[in-house]
Structures are given as C-alpha cells and as structure tokens.
Design a protein around this nucleic acid. Structure first.
Lengths: 208, 208
DNA sequence: CCACAAACATACATTAGTGTATGGAACCAA
DNA sequence: TTGGTTCCATACACTAATGTATGTTTGTGG
C-alpha cells in the first residue's frame, strides 16, 4: 500500500550502489533459473550475486514464493506481449511461403541462439510439471502461440481443424527441437534442416 | 572390493522387512524423480518412504552422487535395451505405412500413457541441461532412437540425408508433444491427431 | 559355537537455507 | 531539526539435509 512513490531514489553518483529494484532481482533470478532451474533459485545465492544481504530481498519480496510467482508472472506477460510484434496480417496478400519461413526461422534458429531465454523457457516448462500455477501460465502461452500460428496457416488451408493440427504440429516440433538439439556441435545445421523440412511439410499439407 | 557375494540374502518370511536391494532404492528414486525432478531426490525423504533410516542408504550407496549416477546409468541401459524389442527388419517387405503408424503410436499415444516413465524421461532431460554426465547419456539415447527410426524410413526414401532429417523431425516432434501436451484434458485427442498428421507428412516426403 | 559380514539403526557434527526482528544510514519533506 | 520513508545490514531462531562413526541385529560358513 501507500503507492510506491515513483521517485524516492537516492544516491547514484557512480559506484554508489545503484539501489536495487524489484526488477533487478527478477533479472538475477532469471540467471539462476536458466542455470539450474527453479530448484536452484535460492534467496541466499541470489543475494550474494547481487552483492547485498538477504535483508534487501525481504524488503522487495514477501518471501521465496513471492519471488517465484512474480518471476512467472513477468515471464508470462513478456511472452504474451512479444507475440504482438509479429502478429501476421490476416488479410495480407503477401507470399505465404516467405512468411512461413520467416516464422520458422524465428521459432527455431533465432530461438536457439538466445540461449538464456531458451534455458528459462525450458526451466519454466519443467517447473510447470510440478507447480499448478506455472502449468496454467505455460498453457496460456502455448495456446496463444498456437493461435498465432493458426492465423498464418489459415492462408494455406481452409479447413480450420487442419489449420489447428498443423499449427500444433509445428509448435510441438519447435519445442521438441529446442529440447533435444541442445547446443551440441552440429545442431545449428540440424536445426536449419529441420526448419526447411518443416516448411516443405506444412506447405505440402495445404488444401488438397 | 571383496566381490559382493551373490546370495547373502536373509529373512524373507513375509512381513519380515524384505531387506532392500540397490534396485529397490533406485525404483523408489524413480518415484521421487518423476514427482519432483532430480532436485527433489533426497536421501532423507527416500529413506522415509522406504521405511528405513539413512543408515541403510549409506550402506547401499557411497553418497548422494552415487545414487544419481547409478540411476542415470540404469535409465540409459533400459532405454537402449528396449530398442531391441521393436527393431525393424531392414529387408522386410511388409507395409511401410502400417509399420510407421505402429511406431508413431508407440512413440506418442503409448508413451503418453506411461506417465511415470514419461515424467522420468523429462526429468532426466531437464537434469541433462546442467549435468554433463546426464547430457552424455541423453545424447546417446537420442542418437540410438533416431538411428532406429532411420532403419524404417530408409524404405520410403533412398536419400540418406533425407532419411536422417525425417527421422530427426519425427523424433523432435514426439519429444515436443510429450513436453507440451501434458495431460490436459483433450490432449489425448490432440496427440492422436498429431500422430495421423505426422504419418501423412512423413509418407508424403518420400522420394519425389 | 564362533567369527564374520550384511543390512540397518542411532547419534553426532556440519552445512545451507529460510524467515523475522531490529538496527542504521541515506534521503526528503515540512 | 525533526520526523518519516526507503533500502539494506545484522543477529537470531529454526529447519532440513548430508555425511560419518559407531552400535546392533540377524544370518551364515567353518
């Protein structure tokens, strides 16, 4: 309560210890989650890496659970929000094949490069297997992404069920490749080949 | 040392506390891993669930790490060994489509029913992201499975590279569906539809 | 019967982690 | 200057978990 006054900031000369924000803690938490999953998200180690004591943490967060749920919420919000940046134009007349390929590149090649982001996503997904709240958020994000792909695939098939199935297949294939092809040497190659193959496969499954 | 004599077993009347074996501990460990991942694999809780104290554990295992590596080794051995049961006949003349469908059913529908087994596999896969030894075993199992599928797909395409790409796609799609479609209601349906679609897609990508 | 080993129990030491209560410095507003 | 708030430090209590050392029971070979 008491409206977190927007600017009660202090100090800030240079090495004046910039006064951590809640988001700073969440960013650091992302590092821990990416490295060791949610089971490795400890208040103590987090404080050490930020150069403060746990006293700081318990000012910004109620407890450990608060940190986890805040992290999950921010993750959900960002994942849903980023979908707006490449929302396909429903009544576009552009090249479907080109659009599909660019989306596939985004989902596969591009995603496999942002290692940090990918690690966090896999960790969240793993955590969702034993945490109901996380499971809900993951389901929400999955549904939104699949729906998004449906918007594009509508242009290669008029059967809504087929569109949805293709979109689901495309999605599970991308998630699977992110899980399986994990930075081994030669994976970069395998990913781009999967990418091409998926494009052919999807385009070949249009109206017949 | 001193050759663990094969039969120094005792007791065994009925409720005589059957004298736990190393494998009993590993079975119980599977339960913990399935429920909460490797981060939840604790000696203490394991002992409680088996109705003994930790003294028993530290007789069967050197330490916690010994438990983990033993568990991983057994997992690897079983996953590699089970592949021999459905090894496709290379020079069979049977129906390729039927064989493919049966394999897809095995990989998707069947796998999604053995929840325990699936949970363990996903946990191992997640643990592999932060444990080099587990990563090696997972890579080994992945490669063996993909090779296995190649044996079948050789009969629908003569291009070895395409065979391998198709096999990889098929594999990542199955893994992805196991990760994404996680027991929500209606997933049973989605899985079987993905199954059919994958069959069509793979068969359609034969020699052209 | 006796020595020995297998399988487990008990007790202890140690560590890592959480949560809470309180203190204190820095800043701002009046 | 005084009071209040923000942000963090310090100190304490508590729990869970590991590992080890040692005791205890049961069965077995000779």
């Amino acid at each position: 309560m008491t409206e977190p006054k927007p600017s009660a900031r202090i100090g800030g000369k240079a090495t004046d210890k910039p006064q951590l924000t809640r988001d700073n803690w969440l960013d650091a938490a992302a590092g821990e989650v990416a490295a060791g999953g949610f089971g490795n998200l400890r208040v103590l180690t987090l404080s050490k890496k930020l150069g403060v004591t746990r006293g700081s943490f318990y000012w910004h967060f109620k407890d450990h659970e608060d940190l986890v749920t805040s992290f999950l919420n921010r993750w959900r919000d960002r994942r849903l929000h980023e979908l707006l940046y490449w929302k396909p134009d429903v009544n576009s007349t552009g090249d479907v094949e080109a659009e599909l390929k660019s989306i596939l590149e985004l989902l596969l090649t591009d995603a496999s490069r942002n290692i940090r982001r990918l690690q966090v996503e896999l960790a969240v997904r793993d955590f969702a297997r034993r945490n109901d709240y996380a499971a809900d958020l993951v389901a929400e994000v999955d549904a939104a992404r699949i729906d998004q792909n449906c918007l594009l695939l509508q242009r290669i098939s008029s059967d809504p069920r087929r569109v949805r199935d293709l979109s689901t297949l495309l999605y599970v294939a991308t998630i699977g490749s992110q899980v399986v092809l994990t930075g081994q040497k030669g994976d970069e190659d395998a990913i781009s080949r999967i990418e091409d193959l998926l494009a052919r496969v999807v385009l070949g499954q249009g109206d017949m």
